[in-house]
C-alpha cells in the first residue's frame, strides 16, 4: 500500500529582500497510514517549513510530495481540505482576535456542513480540558495554554485522518499536555490517524512517535526509531548533544 504521506527531495527557498534562504534542502521521508512521525532539530532548521509545504500552504519543489496519493499542492477541494488539519506553532496565527472560541470552533463545522454543532463544540472543548465558561471568550481573555487548546480543539473537531502538529503542547503545562497526548494517542488508535509531530521536547516526541527525524540546516541528518533514541543508539553528534541537553541545565563551575 502507498504511504499516506510521501516526500521525496523537497526544497523550499524563501526570498526576503535581495537574499534567498534555502530553508529546506532535499528532505525525503514517508509516513504510513496510522503512523506517527516525529521531527526534532535545531531552531530555524526548516521543521515548520516542511509541515507548511506538506499542507500546501507554501510553494515548494520536489520529486514527489503526495498526501493520500494526491499531490499536496493540488488538494483544493473541500474533501481534500478535510483530510488534513494543522495545529500551528503560534496559536495567534490560527485564532482570529475578534472571533470567540465558539465562533472559531463553529466555522469548520459550517464549512463542511456538519450537524449537531453545539454538541460537537461542547465535546471538543471538554476533550481539551476547557470549561463551558471559556466558550464565549475572545483569545486575549485566555491564558497562553488555553488559547493553544482552542487551536487543538479546532483541528480535532473535524476528526481528520491526517494531523500536522507543530509544537502543539509547548505552551501547555505537563498535566494538560498529558491529557492532550493521551487524547491524540486514543484517536490515533481508534481512527488510524496519521500524524507528523514537530517538537523540541524529546520526551513528547518519543511518547507519541514510532520514528523520529533529526533536522539541522534544512536537512534531515538522521532518522531513528524511538527505542534507539531512548537508548542513545544514534549516529550523529548533533543528536547526541540534543539528548544530553534534554536532561537539563548544567551550570559551569565558576
Amino acid at each position: 500500500m502507498a504511504p499516506m504521506i510521501d516526500i521525496e527531495d523537497l526544497h523550499v527557498t524563501f526570498s526576503n529582500g535581495g537574499r534567498s534562504v534555502h530553508a529546506v534542502q532535499g528532505v525525503s521521508f514517508s509516513v504510513e497510514e496510522g503512523e506517527s512521525f516525529g521531527i526534532v532539530g535545531e531552531s530555524g532548521s526548516g521543521k515548520s517549513t516542511v509541515l507548511k509545504a506538506v499542507s500546501g500552504l507554501i510553494p515548494s519543489e520536489s520529486r514527489s510530495l503526495t498526501v493520500n496519493g494526491r499531490p499536496a499542492a493540488e488538494r483544493r477541494s473541500k474533501a481534500d481540505r478535510r483530510l488534513m488539519q494543522f495545529v500551528f506553532q503560534d496559536p495567534y496565527a490560527s485564532l482570529h482576535p475578534r472571533q470567540t472560541v465558539d465562533e472559531a470552533l463553529r466555522e469548520p463545522l459550517s464549512i463542511h456542513g456538519l450537524d449537531r454543532k453545539d454538541e460537537r463544540i461542547e465535546q471538543a472543548l471538554a476533550e481539551v480540558g476547557l470549561l463551558p465558561e471559556h466558550r464565549f471568550r475572545y483569545p486575549h481573555q485566555l491564558s497562553g495554554g488555553q488559547r493553544q487548546r482552542v487551536a487543538i480543539a479546532r483541528a480535532l473537531i473535524l476528526r481528520p485522518p491526517v494531523l500536522l502538529l507543530d509544537e502543539p503542547t509547548s505552551a501547555l503545562d505537563v498535566s494538560v499536555q498529558a491529557e492532550i497526548l493521551n487524547l491524540i494517542s486514543r484517536l490515533r488508535q481508534a481512527n488510524k490517524l496519521t500524524i507528523i509531530l514537530v517538537s523540541h521536547d524529546l520526551g513528547v516526541v518519543a511518547h507519541l512517535c514510532n520514528r523520529i527525524a533529526i533536522m539541522q540546516f534544512g536537512k534531515i541528518v538522521e532518522v531513528v526509531n524511538t527505542a534507539d533514541l531512548s537508548a542513545g543508539r544514534v549516529t550523529q553528534d548533533y543528536t547526541r548533544r540534543l539528548i544530553e541537553a534534554s536532561r537539563g541545565f548544567v551550570r559551569e563551575p565558576s
Binding site: D173, V174, S175, Q177, A178, E179, L181, N182, S185, D201, L202, G203, V204, A206, H207, T226, L229, S230, I243, S246
Partner: peptide, 20 residues
C-alpha cells in the same frame, strides 16, 4: 507530585501518561 508524574520522559517511556 502529579505534575512530575505527568511529564513524558525519553528515558522512561510509558504507554499512557498519568493525568491529574
Amino acid at each position: 507530585q502529579a505534575l512530575i508524574a505527568a511529564t513524558p520522559s525519553l528515558d522512561h517511556p510509558k504507554a499512557e501518561l498519568a493525568t491529574m
